[in-house]
Amino acid sequence: MTDIIKFNKFINTLGEIYALFDTAMAEFPFACAKQCSDCCTCNVTATGLEIAYIQHRLKGRALDDIRLRPARAGQSRRFRPLQTTNGFALACMEGRDTDEEENDPSWGICPFLEDGICTIYPVRPLGCRVMMSTTPCRQTGQADMPFLALTITTIFMQFVEHLDAGGVYGNFLDLLEHAENNILDCNGLTGKGNISGITPNLKIPALMIPPEHVEKTRNLVQSIGSIIR
């Protein structure tokens, strides 16, 4: 399989996973609506494959725009994860403690917001898509997410990382800035440089599904698995 064909396969597979995620989440009564952007901060995470997806799907001025916005935002601090979702699952399996990670929404809003509206909404990474609430966050000061919905979003996070195993995971804006310098490809590093504050994607060691949700998510897991295969 040539590199171009392989790249397109990864991009199309990710698009199918996003579509399936939207379908799965449609079953829940979320209150999220246009201009509801309290969760849209500079702390969103993504995989290298998702950055490639954004760059592949956007063209012309739209692509030039996303390359400039992160630097213009000038946030001095961003959330930089110490481990991936599958890395957390592996640590739990091995009985290892996981480090607490600082993540403060006050560090800044996402530079892709305009009047509370996401300018890259159709191609936004899964780290954005999983942020939902059944009640308006501004009323309670926090998101309200059903336990089953949380399980489903975790499953998708694990599979998207698995799809890009061997690639990189980090702050969404950091990865975008480095991708401008051709340090990333659809599977992570190209060998042209190193990126601080990132961690490698891992294959799924075990799905983090509580016993009470195994049957409820069985068909979904099979559907995602068939897409990846």
Score class of each variant (00 low, 15 high):
84 T>D: 06
142 Q>I: 01
228 I>L: 15
216 K>Y: 02
188 G>S: 00
3 D>Q: 15
104 D>E: 09
96 R>T: 01
129 R>Y: 04
155 I>D: 10
108 G>N: 11
98 T>Q: 12
20 L>N: 14
138 R>H: 12
196 S>G: 13
99 D>I: 07
72 R>P: 01
90 L>C: 09
144 D>W: 01
211 P>M: 08
15 G>P: 08
182 N>A: 14
49 L>H: 03
75 Q>Y: 07
62 A>C: 11
182 N>W: 13
33 A>G: 02
69 R>I: 04
139 Q>H: 09
37 S>C: 11
121 Y>V: 07
108 G>I: 05
120 I>L: 06
201 N>M: 13
160 V>I: 15
69 R>M: 10
88 F>V: 14
41 T>M: 10
175 L>Q: 09
74 G>F: 01
100 E>R: 04
20 L>Y: 08
84 T>N: 05
146 P>F: 12
221 V>K: 08
181 N>G: 04
115 D>R: 03
173 L>N: 06
156 F>V: 06
132 M>T: 11
142 Q>M: 12
176 L>S: 06
39 C>W: 09
112 F>H: 07
8 N>V: 06
52 A>H: 03
157 M>K: 09
62 A>N: 15
114 E>L: 09
105 P>W: 15
97 D>Y: 06
138 R>G: 09
205 P>V: 15
102 E>Q: 04
34 K>G: 11
108 G>W: 02
208 M>F: 11
216 K>W: 04
226 S>W: 02
4 I>M: 09
125 P>A: 01
18 Y>E: 06
25 M>E: 02
200 P>I: 01
73 A>R: 03
34 K>Y: 09
178 H>A: 13
63 L>G: 14
10 F>T: 01
225 G>P: 07
56 H>C: 05
175 L>E: 10
183 I>M: 13
218 R>N: 02
60 G>D: 14
188 G>K: 03
106 S>V: 05
182 N>V: 05
205 P>M: 13
225 G>E: 14
19 A>S: 13
108 G>R: 04
19 A>P: 07
151 T>P: 06
194 N>I: 08
54 I>P: 08
192 K>D: 00
90 L>Y: 11
